[in-house]
C-alpha cells in the first residue's frame, strides 16, 4: 500500500449511523461489535433512569442504555422493532437502544465540524462533532462520554 493510500485511509472515518427520537446520530464503526433486535432486559435496582437493565449476550451480562433518555429526549418504549447497538470501549461492553440503524458511511475527517454551542454543556460533551450530509446533520457520539460510569463497590464500614 502506498503512503498516499494509507494517508487517505487515515483521513476517512467509517461510521454507523442510526436514528433516535427523530434525530440522526452516528458512532465510530470500530467500537461497534454487533447490532441485534430488542430483547427484554432484567431491571437493575437503583440504576439511573436511562439504564433499561441488563441482557444476556451469549453469556455476558450487558447493560442496555436508552440512548434517547441519555440524550435528554423522550425515553424509548422498547418493542421488537427497536435495535440494540452493542459497543465495546475499554473492555466495557454496553448496548445502546436506538430506533433504527440507517447506514454505514465513510466520512472525511475534515468534514467533521465541532459541535455547535448549545445550551447544555453536558449534552455537548456527548458529541465529538457534527457532520453535514445530504441536508441532514449527523451527530457523532463520543461513546466514552455516553457510557454509564462504572459504580464502585462501597467499602463497608
Amino acid at each position: 500500500m502506498s503512503a498516499a493510500a494509507e494517508l487517505s485511509k487515515a483521513d476517512d472515518r467509517e461510521l454507523v449511523s442510526f436514528r433516535v427520537g427523530g434525530q440522526d446520530f452516528c458512532v465510530d464503526i470500530m467500537s461497534v461489535r454487533e447490532i441485534r433486535g430488542w430483547t427484554p432486559a432484567t431491571v437493575l435496582p437503583h440504576a439511573p433512569p436511562y439504564i433499561l437493565g441488563v441482557i444476556n449476550l451469549r453469556g455476558a451480562v450487558v447493560p442496555i442504555v436508552d440512548l434517547a433518555a441519555r440524550m435528554g429526549l423522550e425515553p424509548i418504549r422498547p418493542d421488537a422493532r427497536h435495535v440494540i447497538v452493542i459497543c465495546v470501549v475499554d473492555n466495557q461492553t454496553v448496548g445502546f437502544l436506538v430506533d433504527a440503524v440507517s447506514d454505514i458511511l465513510s466520512v472525511k475527517r475534515t468534514l467533521i465540524q465541532p459541535t455547535p454551542a448549545v445550551s447544555s454543556d453536558v449534552t455537548r460533551a456527548f458529541f465529538e462533532g457534527v457532520i453535514a450530509i445530504d441536508q441532514r446533520m449527523l451527530r457523532l457520539i463520543d461513546i466514552e462520554a455516553v457510557l454509564p460510569p462504572i459504580a464502585a463497590r462501597q467499602e463497608r464500614p
Partner: peptide, 16 residues
C-alpha cells in the same frame, strides 16, 4: 456472572 466489568456495582446485588 459478574456485573462489575460492564456496569459496576449494584447495591445489595452480588452478581448476576
Amino acid at each position: 456472572k459478574g456485573l462489575e466489568s460492564n456496569y459496576g456495582h449494584v447495591p445489595g446485588v452480588a452478581a448476576a
